[in-house]
Design a protein around this nucleic acid. Sequence first.
DNA 1: TCTGGTCAAGGTGGT
DNA 2: ACCACCTTGACCAGA
Length: 331
Amino acid sequence: MRIGYPCINRSIGCSANRTFRLANYSEKRLFETVAGNLDCLFRILRENVRNGFFFHRISSDLVPFASHPVCIHSWQHEFAADFTAIGKFIRAHGIRISMHPDQFTLLNSPRVEVVERSVAELAYHAEALDLMGLDEDARIQIHVGGAYGDKAAAVERFVERFHLLDHAVRRRLAVENDDRLFTFADCCRVFERVGIPVIFDNLHHAVNSSGEDLPSVFRRLSQLWPTRCGVPMTDYSDQAAEAKPGVHAEHLDAESFAGYLRATVGHDFDIMLEIKDKEKSAAVALAIARREAAARLVGASEMFCRNHVLRSLTAENCPGVGCKAKNSDYS
DNA sequence: TCTGGTCAAGGTGGT
DNA sequence: ACCACCTTGACCAGA
């Protein structure tokens, strides 16, 4: 199990998702911005490793306007060495990477222009991950899309468009259950049609599902991720108190998170914490996960420890000497 | 220097 | 047909 937070680190003092207004677009502006974003991304990743966060979502703004017609400049060539270096670091430390194009990326829109823009946006994401030399466990996560008054037909259009995508995109795609239209069960149907893994989002599931409990969701989930794609990716958030259902909490709810881990014991998966205070809650979550894992590992063999606990957890719990000695740290 | 209106992109649902 | 809302950060024009 690896734990991480999306895109932005609030304490490190740099931003890896800086952008600018389209009206101010220039090659100079683009290259300066991308250079800064890549530099900051590398800093964030190093800081994450230091803190035990081995799952990270890279911002879609890494290269602003990358899929826009205005972008005729070869950022790929200009920054090839930077992408390579970051990718090498990612692989060396076993960091799991995801990217999440935003709501405008819609494969199943009835409008041809919308689909064309979406395909270009997906191609950009795949290209960024390819330049880093990452394999298929680095995923591009999107939603199924709009319903357009007929969910079944909307899924059919998704399937149809999926088959037209380049291999570079198809091999990295994953669909996530959303909070309004397409449930986890709907995403599983997409999996059955095109074989792309499903990213489970607990808060969306709480707001929009047919009520499957966590154990049944995770039993299914484990069937949706072939080895080459890595362990299942999940998004975790708590509901913000006194806000509309589906709104992300400002801080992690320690008790809820511990309960979530207990309800999913026995499954290996990575957790992206979509909590507003980012790395702060990720640190709390990591401490909770280590505590829970340690509690489970008391009396367990070193072999069990080595084989069954996620990397974030093993980094300190299982330094290769056996886990019992370290359990006192968490009791 | 500060601030709030606005920013590439779409869809849904209420009126 | 039209408009507010979704959800978020940060850009940047104007004060």
